[in-house]
Structures are given as structure tokens and as C-alpha cells.
Design a protein around this nucleic acid. Sequence first.
DNA 1: GTCTATATGGGGATAGAC
DNA 2: GTCTATCCCCATATAGAC
Lengths: 214, 214
Amino acid sequence: MDAQATRDGILNAAELLFGDHGFPGASLRQITDKAGVNLAAVNYHFRSKEDLYRQVLFRRLRPVNAERLTLLTQAAQLAGDQPVPLRAVLDTFIRPLLRRADDPASGGIPFLRLLSRDLLDPPPFLSEELVREFEPLMTRYTHAFSQALPGLPPLELFWRMQFALGAQLYVAARQQDFARRSRSLGPTDSGEGCIRHLVDFCAAGLGSPPLTAA
Amino acid sequence: MDAQATRDGILNAAELLFGDHGFPGASLRQITDKAGVNLAAVNYHFRSKEDLYRQVLFRRLRPVNAERLTLLTQAAQLAGDQPVPLRAVLDTFIRPLLRRADDPASGGIPFLRLLSRDLLDPPPFLSEELVREFEPLMTRYTHAFSQALPGLPPLELFWRMQFALGAQLYVAARQQDFARRSRSLGPTDSGEGCIRHLVDFCAAGLGSPPLTAA
DNA sequence: GTCTATATGGGGATAGAC
DNA sequence: GTCTATCCCCATATAGAC
């Protein structure tokens, strides 16, 4: 019974190759060759290339979003009846994703590239599923941010959340380059350093005074 | 002599299809069908699919970056011997790109999607050319920002510029969704509104006090 | 469950007539 | 400069033996 091993081998190889070349750019032949399994195994264990891609993505994404909600809930308990501080909210949103850069067992850099691309510009066959996956998250975070930022109009909050998400996705996708450059730029510490600078940047951006009257 | 018309027709069709499906996802057959020209015309006017893609991208990108440098130079002249104010620097960087969303003649939304994807995660056959294209720009803007933000350590400036770039690319890639949602979210004005909110957000993020001592 | 072999279609690129 | 026809390779998916 190494059916599970075959499945996992395919998922791991697909993660690397989809991460490097994207969905249309990686072929099932490359994937099965890298996994050391037969070509036909993909269509047996997964139904199609698209379904394989879905599994590759959601296997990693679901734990990230679950961790975000867990941390946010913990932060809310810690805050009692006060709003969760802005920086704390941001940290629960950013850290669960970016810490994957240094954790190959949770997908590592290939997963970050893959997810960033899909959120920047979702492939049609994924966009509805992504909306469903993120809807509860976005509801909870919109609420948490508006509590932490009383007086910010919803439309401004909407834009600022988009900007914060975009900044996060960009550095997530580029962790590999940053890790390379960090050796020349000085002690960059592209993992924890990036997270702390990003939380700081987003806190300043989200917390700045509203442009429009409340 | 409608060789030029054929070339342009191919470029325009390729821009739309590469924008929708990416480089590996769009085929030369789809492109020549949409352009109403023969399949062989691509290899005659361009040398290969990769060269076609390069032309599609740089035809739009070069004017954007030229406009950025022109505006920054004008702002510097206006400021005299003072540093250009932070918001003004950001505006010259952000506006030339994002205003393309409402300007189909300069590439419109398909170009924004295409460029955002390529900067988030450059295809290997483009990455060197992209570095060359952006190098003078990044040098000038790094200088302008460090003048506008005395006392900010270079490493922090580096991160904050990356975050600002990421936020810009994300909203550039998603202009289409925002335009759709703006009808339900109220008077979003996804063009000028987005630019002003983004400049504001980045100004707050870049201008916040340094984490580390200078 | 895993393999070989193959069906079927599409891909990029090109030769050579017009 | 443009077209037709074609080369050759690779893609996804499946049928059927083991």
C-alpha cells in the first residue's frame, strides 16, 4: 500500500514544477519523471491536470488560512473586550504565509510563488474556489481592521487592505531573490526581517489618517 | 506596404492573448487567428514566440519608464535645491503605470496584467532584460527617496520600496476586478481613486520612523 | 495500483509556391 | 510579404495487460 507515497510524490514534484513554470508551462511528463512514477499515475490518482493543480495549491493554502484564523482568535482572546491592536492583526495575517519561506516541509518558496501568482491573477478554473477559500478570512479581517481603526471609511479600508495584500504577495513571490541578495546587502535576514518590516510598513499605511471624512 | 499593419495587428492580438493566458498559455495559432493574419507571419516579422513576447512587453513598458523619469526630472526642477517631497516622488512612479488602466491605446488592462506577472515572477528568458530596463530607474528612485527620507537606513529603504512596488503591481493586475466591483462598492473611481489612495498608503509606509537606528 | 502502449490533438517552426 | 502545406515534437488522456 504505497498508493499514498505515489500521491505525495506526485504532489511534491508538481509543486516544484508548477512553482517554476506555472500551470500551462509544466507538463505531466516532467512531473511524473521527477516524481519517479509512471505518467498514467496522475490520471489515476487525480482526475486531470487541473485537479492535480488544485490539490497542490490547497494542500498548502488551507493550513495557512487556518493558522491565520487561529492566531487572530488567540489575539482577540488576549485583547479581551478591547480591539486587537493593528500590528497584532497584521502579524497574524502576514506571518503564517511568509514564514513558509524557511519551511520547505510546508511548501517553501515554490508554494509561495505559486500562490502569489494565483492571487495576483487567478486562472479561470480556480477563481471561484479561491474566492470561497478566502471569503471567511476576509470577513473576519475586515472586521478586525475596522475595530482597530475606528473612523476609517470602508472604502478606504478596502483599498488599504488590497495594498497590504499586494505588498505581502510580492515579497512572498520574491523570497528567493531576496535570500540571494541578502548575502550582498548585509544581514538582511530575509525571513523574520522581512516580516517585521512588512508589518511595520502596513501598520503605517493602514493607520494613517483617512483622506476622506468619516 | 502594410507590413507595419501586419506587425501591429500581431502585437495587439498577442497583447490580449498573452494578457489573458500568459506566455505558455497563448498559442501562436490563437494569436494569428485573432489578428486575422497567417500563422507564418509571426516567424517572419518576429523571430520566434519569445521574441514576439519581448516586443509585446517592451513596446508598452519603455514609454512607462520614460514617463516616470521625465516626471521625476520635472519634479526635481520644481523643487530646486530642496529634495522632491515624498508624495511627489511616489506620484511620478505610480501614476504613469496605473493611468494605463483607462488608456487602451497604451496597452490598457491586458498590459498591466502582463507586466505585473512578469515583475512578480519573471520568466527566465526575460529576467536579465527586465533588470537592465529597470536598473537606471531604480538608481534614480533610490536616490530620490533617500533624499526625501533623510535618516532612513538603506536596508529599510530597500524593503519599503519593494513593498510599495508590490502594492502597485497587485492593484495594477486587478484593475479589471476593481472596475467591476466599483459599481457595487459605491463611487470607487478605480482609476484616479486608486492612484491617490496608493500614493497615500505608500507615503505613510515609507515615511514612518525607522525601526533601526540610523 | 502500476505499467506499456497508444489514441488524438495541438504546439512551434519552416520550405517553397505565389 | 504573404500564403499553404507540412515537419516533427509534445501535450493530455485512456485502454488494457500485468
